[in-house]
């Protein structure tokens, strides 16, 4: 029992959680409207898109890679999905859901193939692909917005799985979209922790050469990881369109670093080989809570970026320092994860 507690104390997630609890206490003291269940559910709904995408990005980051083109992937997937719905309002639901996921996975695997072949810094390739996908969709769409989607598409995001009522009698609670996020997180968690594939993903990020010598198909794992991110970006694209009820070719690109920040804040190693779903969830929630709290506390908007930046720097520093200390104490051998 004592060992178990000490284990928790060592975890990065524990510190993130504590920071969040502290934040909630301080913010609620300043404005009691912050610490309400209703606000909590609003935060969850508001950050669902970034939350979903960060799960895919986590997997790629663990392999030791990176891929910031997922926002462009999501844009392409979303626009094509929207085109389908606008051109034929009676299009089968399955189609609307599968098409963006398949497009996402295909575009993701294209990235991985380029990375496997070209051996250039990954970030350069993904920046290039971000521009390629984004430019292509700008060209084909001519910047035109799509809206007026079928009724079910507008109704689905309004479904509440857990319902409460506020004093005005307005229903709020866990939305279907947040539930999708939770589902994606669960699947990612199972994949990373309980499957051979998941362990290989960690192995690849830990030491690519060693992983290769052990007979792991490095290139195949990479293709899987990037396709997975693409597929998740496709899911994110559906959710995003459900929230905004529009498909604008310029609405998503530019948000990639929100997901990157959340994943890194969640304790995932930029060098690869480390990171967890729980940490990423906490990272996403921490940033979302901070953003929400700053407005609710009435902090002038000019200061928001500064606060968010500072929080990131401090959290990441704490993680880095703790890792350094842990390594010293363990004599240079990192047993865990």
């Amino acid at each position: 029992m004592k060992n178990y507690l000490r284990g928790i104390l060592k975890k990065n997630e524990f510190y993130l959680f504590m920071i969040m609890v502290l934040m909630v206490i301080v913010m609620s003291a300043i404005n009691p409207n912050f610490g309400t269940l209703e606000n909590g559910f609003d935060i969850l709904r508001g950050t669902t898109f970034i939350g979903i995408c960060s799960m895919g990005f986590l997997v790629v980051l663990i392999t030791g890679g990176t891929d910031i083109s997922f926002t462009a992937t999501a844009t392409v997937a979303q626009y094509i999905m929207a085109l389908l719905m606008v051109s034929n309002p009676n299009i089968p639901v399955v189609f609307v859901i599968l098409v963006p996921m398949v497009i996402g996975a295909v575009l993701g695997s294209v990235n991985a193939l380029l990375i496997n072949r070209l051996k250039v810094p990954v970030i350069i390739i993904t920046i290039a692909m971000l521009n390629t996908y984004y430019g292509a969709i700008q060209f084909f769409s001519e910047g035109e917005w799509l809206y007026n989607f079928p009724e079910w598409f507008a109704d689905f995001p309004r479904i509440l799985l857990i319902t409460f009522k506020n004093e005005d009698g307005v229903a709020y609670g866990l939305t279907s979209l947040t539930a999708i996020w939770i589902l994606v997180a669960l699947v990612t968690s199972v994949l990373l922790r309980f499957t051979m594939l998941g362990r290989k993903i960690y192995a690849l990020g830990g030491n690519q050469t060693a992983a290769g010598r052990e007979g792991i198909h490095v290139n195949r794992i990479r293709i899987f990881a990037h396709s997975f991110l693409g597929l998740i970006a496709g899911i994110g694209a559906i959710v995003h369109a459900m929230v905004t009820q529009t498909a604008a070719p310029n609405a998503i690109v530019g948000q990639e670093f929100n997901a990157v920040a959340a994943v890194v804040l969640g304790g995932a190693s930029i060098a690869g080989g480390g990171g967890s779903v729980l940490g990423t969830l906490l990272g996403v929630l921490l940033i979302a809570t901070l953003k929400n709290g700053l407005t609710v506390m009435g902090v002038p908007a000019y200061w928001h970026q500064v606060f968010i930046g500072l929080t990131l720097v401090i959290s990441i520093s704490v993680t880095a320092i703790r890792e350094k200390m842990a390594k010293k104490n363990a004599g240079g051998i990192n047993v865990e994860s």
């Binding site: 404005n31 609405a251 407005t295």
Partner: peptide, 15 residues
């Protein structure tokens, strides 16, 4: 951004 305006509006009403 529709999304951002939506979230900010809810926050302002609470604040």
């Amino acid at each position: 951004s529709v999304e951002q305006a939506h979230d900010k509006t809810l926050e302002l009403i609470k604040a």
